[in-house]
Structure formats: structure tokens, C-alpha cells
Design a protein around this nucleic acid. Structure first.
Length: 431
RNA sequence: GGAGAAGUGGCCGAGUGGUUGAAGGCACUGUUCUCGAAAAACAGUAUACUCGUAAGGGUAUCAGGGGUUCGAAUCCCUUCUUCUCCGCCA
């Protein structure tokens, strides 16, 4: 949610940026409602004040005159309350529909084509054979079985078997150890000239189900396209660990001293993927269910952007350690999400498909999400303000398994285990 | 799933219709005292919106929502949460 004061002060800018984000917003209507509500509210509060003063005067035995006077005020109050209620509903609806304002360095543009490639890192290996797609690779005891999964759950589900599972757990363990290592964090902070402390990430397993209120407050609930709802309960299936991590401190004021809070969450994530029919039907790039390691960071406003850069640095570090060629994209205004002020994607090279595919996203929400969640921080001097939130993929499976399979495949259909993962794979060099 | 108990400020806890945003304690902040600290004394310490240059006002909030009443933390209804016991269960 945006600060109403910001909308009052910058109506034209808000209109312009909303249009650039492809989001329809009636700012004029909002400001008209704002003024109308304010005016009624002032009358209402003045009446309530009269009522309170009167009640203060009335003793234990009010006379009829006092009761009549109080009743008259009471009825006026009820009238105004009835009048203001629908206005408030509409006001909140419009205010919530306004997207976050992009930072100045977010490129203009409406679609994927306008995302800017910031850099390409890592050398694309020249293979002396034609690389296969990950779904064509089935090696040793490992396999990706979507046919049987379709019988059980439908399309976009999968059985992943054998050493691929071992590989996934190796990556989880290794990632957790990297992000819990202050030396790694400190190194990334130094290399990127960030003004941050080297506090490590805390591994966390969040709930997989989220109630409607908490989900709506994340500003991430997309009932039509993304999120599964349980039919018998007021609960939704998590579409990302972020969705049950960012709201962890909902309605709380945390002490400035505890910030930043950096979590590395792991959750099975569920997405309806409505509107993606026909896209990525082969392979395991786009699934209804996938496991994901996700970074979630709570910070002060002044360090929010650097935390965002840290998350990106962590992503690059992890991908580099796995020696996967990638490109870093800065997403354009139309492509960063509604709550985002800035967004960056990492796309890893998939040799079987001969293209880069999105594997990571880092999102910076400034105070937009925190305002909706009412997650605030208390400064040393006692003042209170909204904190800033960041989220970023650490690794998303099985997309990442697919990337490793395609990049590390051998001609005879095996997959070489990336060096850093071998200690977590019983020192196997290939599977 | 069944039966019962309970939800008050950062924490503990008083408060069963009339200046209760809410006693008291703890914690925290400041001042005094001290070389410094501890202790002690004194003062201060919720959030949101709103009026005001400010000082300082106003309104709302005692889990959420609704109701009764001139007046609700207090009475009634309802939802949620927590705890205890039974049942089931990874």
C-alpha cells in the first residue's frame, strides 16, 4: 500500500507510474473520497467529542433532559457512521490498487522485451555433442516422471526420482551453509561496497497454508492466476515462502536493533499457472508445485536498497559457485510486480534449449508491503516508521535441477556433479 | 471431532456499566546521587488518524466483528486464537 500523503502530494506522478505498470487506478476519485471522508470524519469526531463531554457530566442518575440530548447526538453519530462506511470501503479498495512507485533507475518499458540485460557472466561451454533438453535426459537411477504424475495430480506435476533428489538436498544443504556463513556475507558486502552488517541468514521453514487476511496483507495474493484456495477453509496454498515470511511480523513494531532480519526460507510452493496454457509444457520449468529456497529480508529504510543489492549479489554468488553461465536482467517498469520498487532477474543458460531461462528474481518492495502488513520499526529515539522488505529467490527447484542437468550433461547421458556440491553428495563426481 | 477455561498496554497483572488510554509491578528512557557503576529517588514511556507553525488539542483502539445502553474493558451474540482433558493421528 502506498502512503496516502504521498498520493496527495504527487497525484500526477502516481497516475503516470501506475499507467507504466499497466495498472488502472482512479487517483482523482481516491483524492475526492479522501477529502469527503476527512470532512465527514471531522464532523463525526466533533460529535463524538460532544457525546464524551456530556457523558463525563452525566452522573449515575441522568435526568430525561440529559438522556434526550445524548440520544440526539448518538443518532447523528450513527447517521454519519453509516454515511462514511461505504466511502471508506471504496477508498481502501482504490488505495490498495495503486502499485508501488518504481525507483528512478528502473528502465521504462511494458514487456519482457524491455528488460535490460545488465551483464552476462560465465562462459557457455562448447560441447562436442548435441546437448539434450533436461526432459530428454534420464540417467542412472534418476528420472523425471510427468506421465505418472499426471495420472495422480494432473499436468504440471512431476515425480522426481533417484540422484536428482539427492542433488536437490545437496543444494539445499550447501546453500544453507553458504548463507549462514558470515564470511561469505561479509565478502559480498565488501565486493559490492554495501553499507551493511554481515549478519547471516537464518534458515526457516514457514507454514504452507496462509489465511486470507494474512495473504491479502502481503499484497501478493493473486486469486485468479496464481494462488490455490482450499475449498473448505479460509486458507490458501503458499505460492512462495515469501508469502508466509514477509507477513511474519504483521501488526508488530520491531526494535531497530534487531534489524536487519535475514531469513532463508524453504517451502514447497504451489501455483495455479492460469493463463500459461501451452507454455513450457515439456520439462520441469513451470510446475504447479515446486520447492524453493527463498531469501526474505527486513531492514531499515536507509539500508533497504543495499539489502536488495546484497540479495542480488548472493544470487550471483550462488550461481557462479555452481558454474552456471547466466545473465542478469534489470526488469522494466511493466515487468516488476505491483508491490515492487525494483526487480532483477537472473537467467541461467540452458544448453538443451539454447537460451537463457529465468531462475531467480530479486524484489525490493520499499515500505509498500510493510505498510499493508503494518510491520514497523522503532528507532532508538522512540519514533516509529515502516520498515523495508526484500525478497529474492535463492534457488527454485526443479528448475535449477534442470539447469544443472543441461549444463553438466555428458555425451553418454550422465550428469557431472558441480564441485561445491560433491561434499554433500558422498563425494560422487557424477550421477 | 467432544468437554471445559481463558484472551487487558513491550511483559506480568488489577479492573463486572459512569472522567479507565486504562491501578500496581517489571522492563525501558532521562535527571539527581557517584570517579564510574549498582542501588535509591524523581520524571517520562502505546498505536493509528486528525486539527495546529508549535506548544498542545480531538477521535478511535482492553483478540476481531455485531448488539444492548444516555454511557461498555465490564452485559449479550458471534468469529478467531491460546491452554487443559478425552478421542484420532505424522
Amino acid at each position: 500500500m502506498l502512503d496516502i500523503q504521498y498520493v496527495r502530494d504527487n497525484p500526477e506522478l502516481v497516475k503516470q507510474k501506475s499507467i507504466q505498470k499497466n495498472i488502472q487506478v482512479d487517483v482523482d476519485k481516491l483524492l475526492a473520497l479522501d477529502a469527503e471522508i476527512k470532512s465527514i470524519q471531522q464532523n463525526l469526531e466533533s460529535l463524538r467529542n460532544q457525546r464524551n463531554l456530556l457523558n463525563g457530566q452525566i452522573s449515575s442518575k441522568p435526568n430525561q433532559e440529559e438522556i434526550d440530548k445524548a440520544t440526539e447526538i448518538k443518532n447523528k453519530v450513527i447517521d454519519l457512521e453509516k454515511k462514511i462506511e461505504p466511502l471508506n470501503l471504496e477508498y481502501n479498495k482504490i488505495l490498495k490498487s495503486i502499485p508501488n512507485m518504481p525507483l528512478d533507475d528502473v528502465p521504462q518499458g511494458a514487456s519482457e522485451a524491455d528488460n535490460v540485460v545488465v551483464k552476462k557472466v560465465g562462459e557457455i561451454k562448447k560441447l562436442d555433442f548435441v546437448p539434450k533438453n533436461h526432459w530428454e535426459l534420464s540417467f542412472a537411477d534418476a528420472s523425471i516422471d510427468k506421465v505418472r504424475a499426471a495420472k495422480i495430480a494432473g499436468s504440471r506435476f512431476v515425480y522426481i526420482k533417484g540422484s536428482l533428489v539427492e542433488l536437490q538436498f545437496a543444494i539445499i544443504q550447501w546453500t544453507m551453509h553458504q548463507l549462514a556463513d558470515e564470511r561469505v556475507i561479509e565478502k559480498l558486502i565488501q565486493e559490492n561496497n554495501l553499507k551493511l552488517v554481515s549478519k547471516p541468514f537464518i534458515p526457516i521453514l514457514p507454514p504452507a497454508l496462509i489465511n486470507t487476511k494474512a495473504y491479502e496483507a502481503t499484497t501478493r495474493l493473486d486469486a485468479e492466476e496464481t494462488t490455490y484456495k482450499l475449498s473448505d477453509d479460509e486458507l490458501w496454498l503458499n505460492a512462495s515462502a515469501e508469502h508466509s515470511l514477509c507477513n511474519m511480523y504483521m501488526d508488530e513494531i520491531v526494535d531497530e536493533k534487531v534489524l536487519p532480519i535475514r531469513y532463508l526460507g524453504y517451502a514447497t510452493s504451489f501455483r495455479r499457472e492460469a493463463g500459461t496454457y501451452g507454455k513450457d509444457t515439456e520439462g520441469t520449468i513451470r510446475m504447479h508445485q515446486f520447492d524453493k529456497l527463498e531469501m526474505e529480508i527486513f531492514s531499515t529504510p536507509e539500508t533497504g536498497l543495499d539489502e536488495h543489492k546484497l540479495a542480488i549479489a548472493v544470487d550471483e554468488y550462488l550461481v557462479k559457485q555452481l558454474d552456471l553461465p547466466y545473465q542478469l536482467l534489470q526488469k522494466c517498469i511493466g515487468e516488476i510486480g505491483k508491490p515492487n520498487a525494483r526487480g532483477v532477474d537472473i537467467e541461467v543458460w540452458f544448453p538443451g534449449q539454447q537460451k537463457y531461462r529465468e531462475t531467480h528474481t530479486a524484489d525490493y518492495m520499499t515500505d509498500y508491503q510493510a505498510r499493508s502488513l503494518r510491520t514497523r520499526l522503532r528507532r532508538q529515539n522512540g519514533s516509529v516508521e515502516y520498515l523495508h522488505t526484500n525478497d529474492a529467490t535463492a534457488f527454485a527447484f526443479p528448475r535449477l535441477l534442470a539447469a544443472i542437468m543441461e549444463n553438466y550433461q555428458t555425451e553418454d547421458g550422465h550428469v557431472i556433479v558441480p564441485l561445491v556440491l560433491r561434499p554433500y553428495m558422498n563425494n560422487k563426481d557424477q550421477v
